[in-house]
């Protein structure tokens, strides 16, 4: 698997896939896409990078342990639902923050935070399973 061509291409391919996964994640609010599918794309980017350049370099590249990443995702995902407590609304009621920036309407919302949480959970969980399988292959 570790041919020269693959090893040269893989970092660029992985970077492109991560970028695309973020695009899919943000697109998911009103159109097909979203946190889960974005997370899967990012996790496969990690997997490809791992096959080409070794698991150790992937772990170095993502800095945090994959399980910590998914823990953080779960954390912000759950907290996104709690904000409505302060407005006397039910758990998971969406809250919006809308403002104009250079004449472009920017809508920030708790569903977006939740979706980012889902993205991180999927990247962490699937990424750690993929890396574990690749590590076994190596030895």
């Amino acid at each position: 698997m570790r041919t020269v061509i693959f090893r040269t291409i893989a970092p660029y391919l992985a970077a492109l896939m991560v970028l695309f996964s973020i695009f899919v994640l943000l697109r998911g609010h009103n159109e097909p896409g979203g946190g889960f599918i974005g997370g899967l794309i990012a996790a496969s980017a990690l997997a490809i990078f791992g096959i080409a350049c070794g698991v150790a370099s992937v772990r170095r590249a993502i800095v945090f342990h994959p399980m910590s990443i998914s823990g953080f995702g779960l954390f912000i995902g759950a907290l996104a639902g709690v904000l409505s407590f302060f407005k006397n609304q039910a758990f998971m009621t969406s809250q919006w923050l809308i403002f104009d920036l250079f004449d472009v309407e920017i809508a920030l919302s708790t569903p977006l935070v939740f979706d980012i949480g889902v993205y991180l959970v999927v990247v962490g969980a699937i990424g750690s399973i993929a890396l574990a399988l690749e590590e076994r292959e190596a030895d």
Binding site: F36, V122, I126, I129, A132, L133, R136
Partner: peptide
């Protein structure tokens, strides 16, 4: 179905690792 796919996919991945470890 999306929820069920997510769940069954992650369980399948986990069981695959488990089965491989058990085989080893």
């Amino acid at each position: 179905v999306l929820t069920a796919i997510v769940i069954s996919f992650s369980f399948f991945a986990f069981l695959l690792v488990l089965a491989f470890r058990a085989y080893q």
